[in-house]
Design a protein around this nucleic acid. Structure first.
Length: 458
RNA sequence: GCCCCCAUCGUCUAGUGGCCUAGGACACCACCCUUUCAAGGUGGCGGCACGGGUUCGAAUCCCGUUGGGGGUGCCA
């Protein structure tokens, strides 16, 4: 098994899914998962992208220290082997040098859509600066046996004599990829469907090299709302971004696996070990899958709720640490209520900051909506009086406010609103009485008085 | 243009000729629960692209049409 991304940007969610598929296969077969960085296009590579890939994979649970993990290897360091293989192809007659430019070809064929016209095929050109080495595609048909798609047949006459070595002598992807897979003993290639058209070409190279090609499996691409392939330019595809927004790696990897594959039956959220055990290439869907953020969020919420309190508090740390006046012990007390309401961990700060700040951030819309009613002043005045002496636990405070509501002919839903805005600054949020309990009597009363003061209540 | 792939609710999918009056999940709507918001519960909306075959019987097999997608680089 191998996963061979090119380090040309942030780690793509589609790549992540391919990696995950490979990983599952390696795990269940006791095989090796090889990470090979395909960095043969020097102009588009950056070392930080490579580290980004490794970090993102580790985040998803594919760590370099895992027994099945091998690498990372860098394709660029095997250029010598690639060139050597190319020369073998040259001497066996499977390749030839060509000095045509793209413009030359188009000028001859008169059609920019057409491929190379095999102009130099039999010119017997020698190696020279600027001359590319092309593969001599044989006549006949190439049959690709694909483990997800079945049998796909290509007419060799329609495959152009593609370039193996550039004019500057550097190897191209098609060749490098094959040579590395051959050398590394790769027996199964699982990659995105966009590589299917490359497969007959690569299979031809394997044949010409006299080696048995690996088994192929092409999984459908991930698409956006317009049903176009997820692209780095248009779409939000960087795994790192999802991490920063508070998606749990467990939720992400579970969700990614369900795109194009299903564990069967009526469940889709299941333990990772079960996923690894039940994944089968033959069950992978043939059609593109839409990357649905809403569904990812649903998965994430589910995983957040399933966390133990300790794990939840720890997972929130990247976002809680920047909350003014944050106190972990206090947060822990309210955490179970927070867990129930979070879709992304990054929302935690807004949910709990009122507990820690000197003064809550007052949402003026909430204030206007709730505090300008007739009842607000009465509720505030009465609750101030009650809360100065009632036992400081959620149940008692609830009972007290219920009594106040009864006196005013209000349901609890109405009565709690002014208290909530006074204490939290907002009209929606965590359960009120539990929040008061955690906040403490002194601070709660102080905020109630401040709100009463703003309303002009004595 | 040419080559290739694909086609079940809006979305992700289950389904491999009779268990299908097509199941689940997300989203959406309603109701219940309720301390706001969630969570949870119950119910609802909604689909086999179309046309031909094959068969006693087709979402499932075959052909065609249409529609989508991918590829078509001295990128990977």
């Amino acid at each position: 098994m191998r996963f061979a991304p090119s380090p040309t940007g942030m780690f793509h969610v589609g790549s992540a899914r391919s990696a995950l598929f490979n990983w599952c296969l390696a795990k269940q077969s006791g095989g090796t998962f090889i990470l090979r960085i395909e960095d043969t296009d020097e102009s588009r590579n950056r070392p930080e992208w490579t580290q980004g890939i490794i970090d993102a994979m580790a985040w998803l649970g594919m760590g370099t220290s895992d027994p099945c993990f091998e690498g990372p290897y860098f394709q660029s360091s095997y250029a010598g082997e690639h060139v050597a293989a190319a020369h073998r192809l040259l001497s066996s007659g499977s390749a030839y040098y060509c000095d045509c430019t793209r413009d030359d070809v188009v000028a001859r064929t008169g059609d920019g859509n057409l491929g190379y016209d095999r102009h130099c095929r039999d010119r017997g050109l020698d190696v020279a600066e600027g001359r590319a080495l092309r593969f001599r595609v044989p006549t006949g048909h190439t049959v690709v046996q694909d483990r997800v798609r079945g049998t796909v047949e290509f007419d060799n006459d329609l495959i152009e004599d593609f370039v193996l070595l550039r004019g500057n002598g550097s190897p191209m992807f098609l060749l490098a990829n094959v040579v590395d897979d051959l050398q590394m003993g790769v027996t199964l290639v699982v990659r995105a469907e966009e590589h299917l058209p490359n497969t007959p070409k690569q299979q031809l190279i394997w044949d010409a090299l006299g080696a048995a090609h690996p088994a192929w499996a092409h999984v459908p691409v991930l698409v956006n709302e317009q049903r176009k392939k997820l692209s780095k330019r248009r779409d939000k595809v960087a795994l790192e971004m999802y991490k920063d927004e508070g998606f749990l790696p467990e939720a992400m990897r579970n969700y990614l696996m369900t795109l194009g594959w299903s564990p069967g039956g009526d469940v889709e959220i299941l333990p990772w070990d079960d996923i690894v055990a039940s994944f089968r290439l033959e069950d992978v869907n043939h059609s593109p899958a839409f990357f649905d953020l809403k569904k990812l969020e649903a998965f994430n919420g589910d995983y957040i709720r399933a966390l133990g309190v300790d794990a939840f508090v720890a997972a929130c740390e990247p976002w809680t640490r920047s909350v003014e006046g944050f106190n972990e012990a206090l947060f822990r007390k309210i955490a179970p209520h927070v867990q129930l309401r979070l879709v992304r961990l990054s929302d935690v700060a807004d949910a709990v900051d009122f507990l820690f700040r000197v003064d809550p951030i007052v949402d003026e819309d909430s204030w206007t909506k709730v505090m300008t009613t007739d009842i607000a002043a009465a509720v505030l005045r009465a609750s101030l009086a009650e809360y100065e002496r009632c036992p400081w636990d959620a149940e008692s405070m609830k009972a007290a406010l219920e009594r106040i509501g009864e006196g005013l002919g209000l349901k609890l839903g109405k009565t709690q609103a002014p208290v909530r805005v006074a204490v939290t600054g907002r009209s929606v949020g965590l359960p009120l009485f539990e929040s008061l309990e955690v906040l403490g009597r002194d601070e709660s009363l102080r905020r109630l008085r401040a709100a009463a003061g703003r309303l002009g209540v004595a």
